[in-house]
């Protein structure tokens, strides 16, 4: 194997088809950047799910003196509260934690949340009422709690925070599916473009490859320069795509999202590097695959 000779053949090949090479690099860069962004969003969503689902609770609000619901006739009695507490205990291990929030605590939290707003002054502890805060081992099982407690005497309503979050996550999931769909379509375009570029390259160098065949160059040696050309284009394209997602991390996540939404964790640099490695690997594999398949058809040995 003559490395220097192969390198000069590859360099000449890339230069000869410069416009195609540039088109190839840009297509690879754009499709991989989209794909990388999709992966980051996906990671972000699963990270947020983990963070929020860990915190979501099912709240069982007890009747207050103001409650209008059919299940309420004045504030919940001690016996009713006792029964709810016993039933929740009986639902372990699905029920992981139970916390009883007094009206005073609810009032304090309310005051904190609406500090400085006139609503804060208008409420009294009695208006807010008491509640059981239930944390589930599996947040998806909240229906069990709802069916067991909703409508029972002394209970005003059962609230599940997860339902609210689910709407948000469904939106994010949808966005992610769309971005992945576009990315996959682009990757298919990339494979086709690599194939077409290789076909043109094989045609424009049919003289060289014909002579190579004739003097007994191995199939590997004949195909290697073409293969290296597409892999080099893939590496450059992937490097640009990595640059794009690094820019996304710095400009969008670090400078904008993180300061604006401080309570939520965002994808970290480890994720960015893992995604970068995935992009590089996918770029190289797709380009090599497309090149090999095309060359098998157009470079007879």
């Amino acid at each position: 194997m003559r490395a220097q000779f192969v390198a000069s053949e590859v360099w000449q090949g890339l230069r000869r088809n410069l416009t195609m090479t540039i088109a190839l690099i840009i297509t690879i860069a754009v499709s991989l950047a989209l794909f990388g962004a999709g992966l980051l969003v996906r990671q972000q969503v699963s990270q947020m799910k983990g963070f929020w689902f860990d915190k979501v609770e099912v709240s069982i609000f007890l009747c207050t003196k103001n409650s209008q619901e059919a299940s309420c006739s004045g504030p919940a009695s001690e016996a009713e509260k006792q029964q709810i507490a016993t039933d929740l205990e009986g639902m372990r291990p699905l029920v992981q934690d139970v916390y009883f929030e007094t009206s005073q605590e609810a009032f304090n939290r309310f005051q904190e949340q609406f500090a400085g707003s006139p609503i804060a002054d208008s409420a009294t502890p009695e208006d807010l009422g008491e509640s059981y805060r239930v944390k589930l081992a599996d947040p998806d099982q909240y229906a069990v709690i709802t069916s067991a407690f909703a409508g029972r005497p002394g209970i005003e309503r059962v609230d599940d925070q997860k339902q609210v979050l689910d709407k948000l996550f469904r939106l994010l999931d949808g966005l992610q599916v769309i971005s992945m769909g576009i990315a996959i379509a682009m990757l298919i375009v990339t494979v086709l473009l690599v194939g077409n570029t290789m076909r043109l390259a094989a045609y424009s160098r049919r003289r060289e490859t014909g002579i190579m065949r004739l003097v007994g160059a191995s199939k590997f040696y004949i195909q290697l320069p073409f293969l290296l050309e597409s892999v080099i284009a893939a590496v450059i394209g992937a490097a640009l795509a990595v640059g794009a997602i690094v820019a996304m991390k710095i400009l969008l996540v670090d400078r904008f999202l993180e300061p604006s939404f401080q309570f939520t964790p965002f994808v970290g640099w480890e994720t960015v590097w893992v995604v970068s490695a995935i992009l590089l690997a996918i770029g190289i594999l797709l380009a090599a695959f497309a090149a090999v398949v095309t060359l098998r058809r157009y470079l007879k040995v």
Binding site: M1, R2, Q4, F5, R207, E208, G210, I211, M212, L214, V215, G216, A217, S218, Y221, I222
Partner: peptide, 24 residues
């Protein structure tokens, strides 16, 4: 003839050896 037009006489002949991996 089937020579490579962008290679010199020497390079055309050397090409046949290079592509079968002969040392420089």
């Amino acid at each position: 003839f089937r020579l490579l037009p962008n290679k010199t006489v020497f390079e055309n002949v050397a090409f046949a050896l290079e592509v079968i991996g002969k040392p420089r």
